[in-house]
Design a protein around this nucleic acid. Structure first.
Ligand SMILES: [Mn+2]
Ligand SMILES: [Mn+2]
Ligand SMILES: [Mn+2]
Ligand SMILES: [Mn+2]
Lengths: 224, 224
DNA sequence: CACTGAATTTAGGCGCGACTAAAAAATTAT
DNA sequence: ATAATTTTTTAGTCGCGCCTAAATTCAGTG
């Protein structure tokens, strides 16, 4: 039986691999809020497990084996399905779903997973725009075009927000920057200055904001 | 922070106290599927905790303190609300809800609890007829009249089934003996023989069965 | 190439919650 | 009242997942 801790390690390895490329001990330690020495210990255990869940060579970082990736994707599917279920069926705000899903992901049964997936109509993205892995372990390519890369004059739609921090998510919601919101970039201030945007559908009242790079780097958009 | 294990012990103590009266080490061990020595160890820890969660004197059994009872009732509220939610919102059969609730009860937040309680209309009983404790820790008196005590000729309604065994629950469902089903006792065979009953609403097709004592003792009913 | 600072690993230890085997206490039978 | 049986407790151990402190290894610099 796979422990909650192991599930969280595999999930974290997958996520770091996805958005940094190389998974180091210290990144894992930060991600999991655990001492680096604890990570080394766990990673050695995962590498010794049968079947092996990670590839690990001292000082070389960690990668998932197929068996490890399979478990990671199962946990991530649980997590994202639960997030969406909480938002859709129970009316959770998008800044609260992550913390709740973090605990529920480890305890729900296959039946629970299947029931909420069916109820949601086999959804493909969670409330933050992250793709939901399918049951057989395939994941759609996530949107990777940051708002910070959009030229003035272009109109795009928010497709994904890459941050789980509740404060950040509440801030975005206040600005109207929720999933699928329409955004027009009006101006980019020089010397890496703020990006000026207008948020809202054509016809509806449009709100304008100036956003710093650390914000616009974490919002991913799609062209229309 | 209270561990899942402690929550399960306190819940088990409450439940045994409720339907046997006196809570012994061996009953707890059976209930929790754990060795008797493990129970002794945990119970000593609960008695040493601050605030104390149980009263314990060697060889004298265990009782809950007010602090212990409070936690037990919170966990039981979670458990029964979740059972009902699974049945009502996700279409679970009543024999599957217990196993799922057993895990979920320890991880849901106050917000989750409040949301499902509101969605269910602040219900008072779970899918097996067990009363759901209120948020402030009061519990309605559970129905305690067993079907085995009903005289021939009387018509009653199933109010509570005192067993979590999925096989047993599926068997009852097959007989039509679900919560609130109408039952008329037609005959009691002598020498502790089977109880003959007719199940069904007036007008609907009525089915008859003969049930042994171990079944009728676990079905509680209310007079109409 | 040697030095230095950062990242990583090793060593040793802790609390939790379970276990088995053996001792002790309580209960029941003779 | 004593013996046999059952129940409960003690003693000792284990795996898990974390910790701190110290040792090691790596990477960048002069
Ligand atoms: Mn988690
Ligand atoms: Mn998400
Ligand atoms: Mn439980
Ligand atoms: Mn129940």
């Amino acid at each position: 039986m796979i422990s909650h801790a192991v599930e969280d390690y595999l999930k974290a390895i997958y996520e770091i691999e996805e958005d940094v490329g190389h998974v180091t001990t210290s990144l894992l330690a930060m991600h999991l809020a655990v001492a680096p020495a604890s990570v080394t210990g766990m990673v050695q255990k995962l590498a010794k497990a049968r079947p092996r869940l990670v590839n690990y060579e001292r000082h070389q970082g960690v990668t998932l084996t197929p068996a490890g990736r399979k478990i990671a994707l199962e946990v991530i599917r649980h997590h994202r399905l639960i997030e969406l279920y909480l938002a859709e069926a129970l009316g959770y705000d998008w800044d609260k779903v992550d913390a709740e899903a973090e605990k529920l992901e480890h305890v729900i049964s296959e039946e629970f997973e299947d029931k909420i997936a069916a109820l949601l109509g086999d959804p493909t993205v969670d409330p933050h725009g992250d793709p939901i892995p399918t049951k057989d372990g395939t994941v759609a390519e996530a949107c990777r075009l940051p708002l910070s890369a959009i030229e003035p004059g272009c109109t795009v739609r928010v497709a994904r927000v890459r941050d789980a921090d509740p404060e950040f998510l509440r801030y975005l919601a206040e600005l109207g920057l929720t999933l699928r919101a329409q955004v027009t970039v009006t101006k980019r201030a020089p010397f890496d200055g703020p990006l000026h945007i207008a948020v809202g559908e054509a016809g509806a009242p449009v709100r304008t904001h100036a956003l710093g790079r650390s914000v616009t780097d974490r919002i991913f958009v799609e062209r229309q």
